[in-house]
Structure formats: structure tokens, C-alpha cells
Design a binder for these strands. Structure first.
Lengths: 113, 113
DNA sequence: ATAATACTTAGCCATTTGACTAACTAACCC
DNA sequence: GGGTTAGTTAGTCAAATGGCTAAGTATTAT
């Protein structure tokens, strides 16, 4: 029986937006200021702020303010629950597929008799 | 070599809803009718239908109608792009890739919608 | 002290989401 | 044929999403 991960919804939701994924990819190069993230996307600052807060609430990034500059950085371990869920699903899904394959294999053998 | 994944947004979006994830978990046991999926969730048929169409458009399930019964089944390989993206991100985030490779990865991800 | 920079907050707007009910169609069963 | 079953379609509704502008605050630069 699969476990229930309450934190998966905000994570998947945060990852569902291409702008947010591109922000993550940019941050993978290293920390960046809000303005640095605004320029390549062509989005206004408040819009970027919104995306950043979604990412931060999902635990995917962390931010800190020094003077008037807010610096954003990735939280590498944040993807772990997603990975765990994915591993679990694959195990179940492929297990099911395995059983179907076994059945098909048996049926084929029977048919060749 | 990494691929280009236009389908990531619908996939992540489909997975962001707990009801849809529970439907997937149920379908992992084996194919089911729409009504079978409606009962455990406590949701009405049209609501379940909506979730199913989101899952089907994301490629996570396939459905077929026989008489008046629609049967839904999982598409196990549908999670592959998610897994691949996750593997890539982990590699970058954990700093296993050089700066140049990370840059190339970012360039390829550009335009992902 | 003033101006420029870097957010931040508030609020607007169109679209999408996720739920529902009501009414409709298309099998199947007697 | 008439009733039941299984979806399906259409339409409503509140809340959330993703963009914006305009106006605020705090910090740094001249």
C-alpha cells in the first residue's frame, strides 16, 4: 500500500509551471537575486516574487535578504519526496506490469502446446 | 543525452492533485471502471471524469469503452520523463556536473512549456 | 539630502480548477 | 417496451492561478 505524502501536492504544483522550472534550472548554476531571475524570464518583479514564494513554500528554494537584496538558492534535498514517491510508484506499476507479462507469457506457452 | 520534454507541465500538473494520485494508486492494482474509481473517493461521476481526462491528457492512463463501461488503466512508462528530469536535476543540483554541462542543460531546457 | 535601486504590497483582471446538479445518451435486462 | 445502469454533456459557482500596474518601503550611492 502506498504511503500518503501530504507535501507532494505543493511540490508537484510548484514543478508544474515552466517558468518555475526555468527558475530552478537557473538557480542550479548558483544563487541569484530576484532581479537576476526577472530579466531572463521577461516577467515583472511581482510576478517573479509570486513564483519564488510558491517555490519556497514547496521547500524547493530558500531565500535570505541582505540589505535590499534578496538572494535565492536551491534546496537540493527538496526533491527527495518526489523521488521516493516515483520509486514507489514504479515498483508498484512495474510489479503489476510484471504480473501481466507473466500471465501473457504463460498464455503463450499454453497456446503453443 | 538529455531529451527535450514538452510534456512535463501536464505531467506535473496531473500529479499535483491528491485525488488524481489516489486514482493512480488504485489503478496500479489493476484496471477499473469509472464507477469503481468514483466510490472510494466519494466524488461524483462528472468530477471523476474530469480527473480522468486530466490524467489521460498527461498520458498517465489510457481508457477504452466496451458497451457502456469505460475501463481505465495505467500507462507505466508515462512517468519516465519525470524520472529523467528528476535524475538530471539531482545531478546538477548536487554539483556532479561541470559548469559547462550545467549551462548546456539549461540551454536545452529553455523553451520547455 | 536626494536620487536611484531593489524589492514589496495592494489590488485588478482573465482564465483555469475542482467541485456540484440536472438533464441527456447509450447500453443492458426483464 | 420499460426500467435500470454507466457514462456523458452542459452549465453553475467559488477559489486559485498567473499575469499586470501603481504605489509603497528600505537601502545604497552621489
Amino acid at each position: 500500500m502506498a504511503k500518503y505524502y501530504p507535501e507532494l501536492s505543493p511540490l508537484f504544483h510548484a514543478l508544474a509551471d515552466p517558468t518555475r522550472r526555468s527558475i530552478l534550472t537557473r538557480l542550479a548554476e548558483g544563487p541569484a537575486r530576484v532581479t537576476d531571475l526577472s530579466e531572463p524570464t521577461g516577467l515583472r518583479l511581482p510576478t517573479v516574487m509570486r513564483h519564488l514564494s510558491v517555490l519556497e513554500e514547496a521547500g524547493l528554494i530558500s531565500t535570505s535578504k541582505d540589505g535590499r537584496v534578496r538572494t535565492c538558492a536551491i534546496v537540493p534535498e527538496a526533491l527527495e519526496p518526489v523521488r521516493t514517491w516515483l520509486d514507489e510508484q514504479r515498483a508498484i506499476w512495474e510489479g503489476r506490469l510484471g504480473r501481466l507479462e507473466a500471465f501473457a507469457m504463460k498464455a503463450m506457452k499454453e497456446g503453443t502446446k
